[in-house]
Design a protein around this nucleic acid. Structure first.
Length: 895
RNA sequence: GCGAGGGUAGCCAAGCGGUCAACGGCGGCGGACUCAAGAUCCGCUCUCGUAGGAGUUCGUGGGUUCGAUCCCCUCCCCUCGCACCA
């Protein structure tokens, strides 16, 4: 009946109450520098899913581990509580976002408690409370003071039916259907009402993250505790590129700046191209029907084909002085570089394609690096552009220079040319035309003061009551909107946009330090002590946005608010997905395993333990009901072992077997500890389960030595405690310990890892050899097995062989009289050593080998049901010793 | 196209210069226990082998080394991110 499990519900309830009573997870404000362990706070959707459970089990296990090793730990939890889903849910249910959100929070907090996550709930935050979001507004104001806020026009997705801006992910059908050959791009539709989405230009608020682009990029190098993938994604996202800006003179329009990374190819610039929305293109459109038609009807920036139209203008190539035609082309993007480019068809693939289409001249100006002494020869670029660096040709005085040198030289020589860096990173538009977010603390004065930031003493600007309307509820809140200008006292209207919720999450980790502070977002001194977050854990989907914004905020706060840290997260773990049959769990696919069901059926400890042992935290893994069952069975068996032990304490000897078990206990403790340090819970748990098996075998084979056995059980319980805390408390108590396992000291063991490795290897090899012999020799029923450790002189010989660099090893060995005395045996062994000369490594000492084998003899006895004796060399006949070597005992089996 | 990470026995998956024919798990096979099933426990699971042996393996093809799954190069394939980026 062992598969019936144990009464997990009772166990979990009991210890959750005990933790509550003991305030076990509280981190008092006066601790100096706690280990800060943090999981990315969730959006309160109302239901914990497997991804959450995995995320928070990782942080919880690590926090508990660090607590047991003696650290003070800060492990808080909060809610990313603003966001559109609450508005939609409120409309559907005829309630309001606030009530709905807090209902969800209550439910999820309950689920987290039932999972046994140990949070300091006194530090809980919810971003939708004025106590929190007032600091978003305050920070906005500080950013504004530092000129890091800007209001400007931006293109947004606009649904005319709903009268609101849509996020990109709320626009559906943007991609043309698979396989459709250029046939009609699918229209972009509003996810709610299927109305075609329009592009609108609206005034939006931006945070100037680009001011920090260089530092954000360069500091990535120092984030050694972050996964490479995330670091690389951030580098790509920032996308810095060094190049040059250079002016081309266009008649009647003055100098037009182009950005290029290949200034060395300027002699090959045979035409010039402008983005369709470049100011000059727009001017031209007013008088040139062809250009207007192209911009309005033909330009397709998303298509594969480069399209364009020739204008009646020419531009002057500043290097050659030649007049080259100017095109308006849709492959030129206004938000890349300057929105204008010098086209070099000989050395750029896209320019090449366009030149072929338009019949423009293609001139090679860079030749491949000549091999050896061969002549530089212009490449054939009629069919394909040559895009590598090389040596300049057809480039006037620059011919013969290498690309790199030529670029520098040209920057010097061309007046308008200068070094510039180009970034892919854009400023962060934070305006959202929605209700459930932080009101942007700005009023628009009717009397000419413009947009005025609300003074600090008038913060927070609180959200008005929710109005169920199609557009932005804030826009409909007439009374709320009407206000006075802080500067002139005249009539004014409130800004009706709210902030992107990523603003909330860009500093929430600071708020946990002093969540109730009334006069600042965080207590500076305490935050300087407690930050940065030592271990941050969350999904890879936040690799760029959230993590980049948080870094940005941290740097701004360091520059202007006295924060002593320039990076928020020292170590980052991007946890893998929980899958089902190789597929991501998702509601739409209907392949979701509910954590609630698992907790009800098997208990929180089983769910947690199964997840942590299934794979390394950063790997995806498959949920397996079978695995869950066997995990549950493991815990049940362990519980029985502990109960059996305390009901009837054994009375065995501290014999060789006990010594074997004791050594395994030490080894397990040491290995598991270092695996916990590395967050490789799966390996720590494997070791722990192996030890449990060893203990069970021990008890099954003989009457265990009580102290040894108990030490083993106690170690297993504590090694399991970070991951399966409830059952660990139960068993720790059953074993008669005082106090909670939460506060228990982590078991310690001093071992020599190399020694353990060799000992385990020796035992495993010897068992394997015995099996081999029994099998190959066809021994039906072995009666006695003798295991004989090699004579001391072989160990000496091995040592000499390792140390020696003499050509003639045998000669060297024979200089030792006690080896020479062995005669032929010495010569034979010497030859073996010589043959493997380069691969030799030290074994255990003879005594240690003897001891290891002796203490493991019971494993052989048990397996083969035969008497096993471990002997030293001097106890046996010389003929037996031929096969004995250091690390490999001779084996004699009696049939 | 650029960048990052990968390709290991039926499957999943460790190892990352020498005890590696390669940890562990799943699946499969055999055995113990059981009336039986399940659970548990013990083996086996590349090929050949009547005393611990030998042979062929770690995407492909080369190279470095006394020695390579492990290091270097070529190519092929997979996953992820970025991309008409000037």
């Amino acid at each position: 009946m062992s598969d019936a499990g144990y009464d997990h519900a009772a166990v979990e309830r009991r210890w959750q109450e005990a933790w509550d009573d003991a305030d076990a997870y509280r981190t008092p404000d006066d601790v100096e520098d706690p280990t800060y362990v943090l999981g990315m706070y969730p959006y309160p959707s109302g239901k914990l899913h497997m991804g959450h459970v995995r995320n928070y089990t990782i942080t919880d296990a690590y926090a508990r581990y660090r607590r047991m090793t003696g650290d003070e730990v800060l492990h808080p939890m909060g809610w990313d509580a603003f966001g559109l889903p609450a508005e939609n849910a409120a409309k559907e249910r005829d309630t309001n976002p606030r009530d709905w959100t807090f209902d969800c929070i209550d439910t999820m907090r309950g689920q987290m408690e039932s999972m046994g996550f140990g949070y300091d709930w006194d530090r809980e935050i919810a971003t939708c409370t004025p106590e929190y979001y007032q600091w978003n507004q305050w920070l906005f104001s500080r950013f504004h003071d530092e000129d890091l806020v800007e209001r400007r026009d931006a293109d947004v997705n606009w649904c005319p039916e709903c009268e609101t801006v849509l996020a990109d992910e709320q626009v559906e059908g943007g991609e043309s259907p698979e396989g459709s050959q250029g046939g009609g791009e699918a229209a972009e539709l509003c996810w709610r009402c299927d109305t075609p989405v329009e592009q609108r230009e609206l005034e939006q608020w931006f945070l100037k993250i680009t001011e920090y682009a260089d530092e954000l990029l360069e500091d990535i190098d120092d984030l050694e505790g972050w996964p490479n993938s995330v670091r690389q994604m951030q580098r790509n996202w920032i996308g810095r590129q060094y190049g040059a800006e250079v002016d081309f003179e266009i008649e009647d329009h003055g100098p037009v700046t182009a950005f290029t990374t290949r200034l060395d190819t300027i002699y090959g610039a045979t035409f010039f191209a402008l983005a369709p929305d470049h100011p000059i293109s727009e001017e031209l459109a007013e008088e040139d029907e062809g250009v207007r038609h192209f911009i309005e009807e033909e330009a397709d920036p998303d298509g594969d084909e480069p399209n364009g139209v020739e204008t009646n203008l020419t531009a002057t190539n500043p290097a050659t002085g030649e007049e080259i035609p100017v095109y308006v082309a849709d492959f030129v993007l206004s938000d890349v570089g300057t929105g204008a480019l010098m086209a070099v068809p000989g050395h750029d693939e896209r320019d090449h394609a366009f030149a072929q289409k338009m019949g423009e001249e293609i001139v090679p100006v860079v030749a491949p690096e000549p091999e050896e002494v061969e002549e530089t020869e212009a490449p054939d670029v009629s069919e394909e552009a040559f895009t590598d660096d090389g040596v300049l040709v057809n480039s006037g005085e620059y011919a013969g220079l290498e690309s790199e040198t030529a670029r520098e030289q040209l920057i010097e020589d061309i007046d308008s040319a200068e070094h510039t860096a180009q970034y892919q990173l854009r400023d962060w538009g934070i305006s959202r035309q929605r209700y459930w977010g932080t009101p942007i603390p700005v009023v628009h004065c009717h009397d000419g003061c413009g947009s005025v930031v609300v003074p600090d003493e008038e913060l927070p600007v609180e959200l008005p009551a929710f109005i169920n309307t199609t557009g932005n509820p804030l826009d409909a809140a007439e009374e709320w909107k009407r206000t006075t200008c802080p500067e002139c006292g005249g009539e004014a209207t409130r800004e009706t946009d709210t902030m992107d919720t990523f603003v909330d999450s860009s500093w929430y980790f600071l708020r946990y330090v002093s969540p109730d502070l009334a006069d600042a977002p965080f207590d500076l001194e305490q935050t300087n002590d407690w930050m940065p977050v030592d271990q941050y854990v969350g999904g890879i989907e936040h690799a760029v946005m959230h993590l980049l914004y948080s870094r940005f905020f941290t740097k701004v706060l360091a520059d202007h608010e006295g924060l002593d840290h320039r990076e928020p997260f020292t170590n980052l773990l991007a946890q893998g997905m929980v899958q089902l049959e190789g597929e991501k769990m998702s509601k739409s696919k209907g392949n979701v395993v509910s954590p609630q069901r698992i907790v009800e059926e098997y208990g929180a400890d089983t769910a947690r333990l199964f997840m942590m042992q299934a794979a390394q935290p950063e790997r995806d893994f498959d949920w397996s009901e079978e695995g869950v069952r066997s995990t549950n069975a493991f815990l049940t068996r362990l519980k029985e072992m502990v109960e059996d032990f305390s009901a009837d304490e054994p009375d065995g000897e501290e014999d060789a077997i006990a010594r074997y078990v004791a050594a395994e206990i030490d080894a397990t403790i040491a290995i598991a500890g270092s695996e916990y340090d590395d967050l490789t819970f799966n390996r720590a748990l494997r070791e722990t389960q192996d030890l449990t098996r060893t203990l069970r075998q021990y008890a099954a084979y003989t009457e265990p030595h009580a102290d040894t056995y108990e030490r083993g059980l106690s170690a297993v319980v504590r090694l399991l405690a970070p991951v399966a805390p409830h059952i660990a408390e139960e068993l720790y108590d059953e074993l008669g310990h005082d106090g909670l396992v939460v506060d228990a000291p982590w078991p310690s063991a001093e071992i020599d890892h190399e020694h353990v490795r060799k000992r385990r290897q020796l035992v495993a090899n010897t068992r394997e050899d015995v099996r081999d012999i029994v099998d190959v020799a066809g021994i039906e029923d072995p009666q006695a097995i003798d295991v004989v450790v090699a004579p001391d002189w072989k160990y000496d010989a091995l040592e000499i062989a390792i140390e020696s660099d003499a050509d003639n090893l045998i000669g060297e060995l024979m200089q030792e009289s006690h080896i020479r005395e062995q005669g032929d045996a010495a010569a034979d062994y010497g030859q073996d050593l010589q043959a493997e000369r380069e691969a030799l490594s030290r074994t255990l000492e003879p005594d240690a080998e003897h001891d290891a084998l002796e203490s493991a003899a019971w494993l052989l006895e048990r397996e083969f049901d035969a008497a096993v004796s471990v002997r030293s060399a001097d106890e046996v006949d010389e003929s037996v010793l031929k096969n004995a070597a250091p690390g490999r005992p001779a084996i004699e089996i009696e049939d």
